[in-house]
């Protein structure tokens, strides 16, 4: 019995370690995205290309943060996802409204 729990414990630690490895890879990718974002602005690439690319990089980076660092990819995160996406939807409407208000 004691041996059994010990095995379980080992298995869990190994699983945690593998997850941590993924987290470090995520982190490296996020650093890379940030460097690309700053690089594009510093080297003054075409504005029409840079702005949408910056926004896409930001959204992907935030996705990494949410799904890996904040564990939203784990089981039992249906309600958190609902809350966050509802929040993001209202956030989108808010930004849209405030931008359209000053359009003309």
């Amino acid at each position: 019995m004691a041996e059994n729990t010990n095995l379980q414990e080992q298995y869990r630690k190994k699983k945690n370690k593998e997850e941590m490895k993924q987290q470090v890879i995520t982190f490296v990718l996020m650093i890379l995205f940030t460097v690309i974002a700053f690089g594009m602005v510093i080297y003054e690439l075409d504005k029409l290309f840079v702005i949408p690319t910056l926004l896409i990089l930001a959204v992907v980076q935030v996705g990494f943060q949410l799904y890996y660092f904040m564990h939203m990819s784990h089981k039992g995160h249906e309600m958190p996802a609902l809350m966050l996406y509802a929040g993001a939807f209202v956030a989108f409407l808010t930004v849209l409204t405030l931008s359209v208000l000053i359009w003309w």
Partner: peptide, 21 residues
């Protein structure tokens, strides 16, 4: 806490919208 984060998202969005405007 995730409920709260949903609300925080909207709160920051209103500040971002104001800044953009």
């Amino acid at each position: 806490f995730w409920f709260f984060l949903g609300g925080e998202t909207v709160l920051f969005a209103s500040l971002f919208g104001t800044y953009l405007a």
